[in-house]
Design a protein around this nucleic acid. Sequence first.
DNA 1: CCTTTACTTTCAAACGTTCTAAACAGGTCT
DNA 2: AGACCTGTTTAGAACGTTTGAAAGTAAAGG
Lengths: 348, 348
Amino acid sequence: MVFVFEPTIKDIAKLCGVGVSTVSRAINNHPDINPETKEKIMETIREYGYVPNDSARNLKRVDAKAIAVLVKGIANPFFTSMIKVIEEECKKKNYAMELTHIEADEDEVDVAQKVVKEKRLRGIIFLGGLFWHSEDKLKKLNVPFVFSTAGAIPENISKNLYSNIGVDDRRESAKMVDYLIGLGHTKIAILVSEAEGKSIGQLRLDGYCDAFRARGMEINPRLIFHAYDGLSHFSMENGYRTTKRILESGEEFTALFAVADALAIGASRALMEAGYRIPEDISLAGYDGIDMANYITPSLTTMRQPTEEIARETTKLLFGIIAGRMKHQHITYQAQLLVKESTRAVSH
Amino acid sequence: MVFVFEPTIKDIAKLCGVGVSTVSRAINNHPDINPETKEKIMETIREYGYVPNDSARNLKRVDAKAIAVLVKGIANPFFTSMIKVIEEECKKKNYAMELTHIEADEDEVDVAQKVVKEKRLRGIIFLGGLFWHSEDKLKKLNVPFVFSTAGAIPENISKNLYSNIGVDDRRESAKMVDYLIGLGHTKIAILVSEAEGKSIGQLRLDGYCDAFRARGMEINPRLIFHAYDGLSHFSMENGYRTTKRILESGEEFTALFAVADALAIGASRALMEAGYRIPEDISLAGYDGIDMANYITPSLTTMRQPTEEIARETTKLLFGIIAGRMKHQHITYQAQLLVKESTRAVSH
DNA sequence: CCTTTACTTTCAAACGTTCTAAACAGGTCT
DNA sequence: AGACCTGTTTAGAACGTTTGAAAGTAAAGG
């Protein structure tokens, strides 16, 4: 490796014959500076390729311009597009984004606390189905945080402690199932992930049950299948394997509702491998509205969440709260039922 | 927000009645410390929830324990699994990982330089099809860097300036095309992304041509289709749109080779929408071996790159070079031809 | 009782910024 | 000429850590 001179702010100051603070002023677009001096300094900076040391900056600044994004269940392609949007918004505001994955066996609060303190971050976005047990835990986080597309938070937690942005999973899920029932399906299997606590999976399962009840129909518990491999819940692999199991179980059904598109895509493959035609023999529906749902054949009927919009609003809200010009909010978006080729009326 | 006491190392020192450096010693597992003192300090740290400030640490330390991963073309799902592995390896070594996406219009070296200087990183992994023009540019990077699954680097650049790990795209691509020819196909269309310079797309196109030449067959330039939307080259959307265009062109072909699985999946949908059966009417082949290729129907014949292995070795190599116990290397992995349902012998 | 040795611990100087308060020019007004 | 602006610049104290050199302790050796 070649030796390369790495200039600091001091070097630049010396080079320009000015004080360090003047250079700092120039860099940070402070008002009180002579435009001429500023131009000269910027010139020198370009020439020597000076880049301010982020650590030194963050050390001194009270507000390290950075937020954390904590994601549980990275396997779900659903998050990728959200993260991209969040990143964009951060760039606009000149904020750095610390992306951290939470493993299934890790405690969310502990991880959040650690990363926030380490990097002196100003806020947190929680992405995905986290589940919080107590208010005490949440209070340990000393910065504003926002849940996005998370599961339900227990009722006993004070609403103005956090923000929550997403769709009403239970209601939208019910809509989907109601749509299937409307097509004449009565034997509707559901492919759901873990369902302990108020996880996303549980909410969507609740919606499934709601839809049946609303129509005064019986729920057959043997048509509820859990896909939980202990790791990434919403994966294609998981959907595929569980659907195989469903088929082996011998239960009869004319429609299958997978509570996530990734699961549905795996299910689609398993069904077709087994010789079922979609939708002629079995209707298949997903949930999320990921890109890929449009590219499989038959294209997947799904409940599209406005991911980009949610991600964008989440980020803006967090910045607003950090800046002190907004308060915690609870926003519910509408999902959109996208009817594609994978569902049709039941054939008698 | 509640006021929370954020202890510093000084506070811990005072609390324990010892000097700051002793606390520092305890945290960093230095040898010269009384086990008893250490235990007491660790106890206090746990009690007060002290977490060292990363900025202060990195500021003082010569070696900020962190590397950068620069990705061009995030839309390609191919990278997701690689990033996951790199992250794992970093965690093992207690290194932080700075993930940065490079936009299509950004200069890779400029971005790399900026991020490395800002964060004082120790090394760089370049993921994906970057293209380097000159040795001078590369020399500007003052830390070791490793290319992974990148395009070919021009011959005139000194080999011991960098490492390069991946498969021989040209050779493996030729293998795939040769396999298609072996099935009796002669009119093989290729769906390729941008092809200026020695990009990955160009290499795979070269392989396509090699395969024809090796058999003494003619190449029909009108069967070469470029999918370049100026943004994410290897996306399903891009594959879909370009295949529509191919079909409109009216050129005849019995097989389509998409140089990336994401493109192939988009192509698959476009072909089926247009009423073509795969593989009865048209054989379809991809390249990369992403997970999803197994879940579409028909499952996709593809050239599987050992992504996990490549990512793991890339990271290990970079750490080795940083530690000074390894030198730059150029490693070529074998890809694996996975024959699935989407290809079959041409029907006469 | 004074050295030596080995083990612990502390002091204080960095690291590269930002930011407050103070200083400095060069007017303009009494 | 002094007082008072106004616009620009600077010195220097933080920020929270690591680290090498120095200092302190206690046990062992003479």
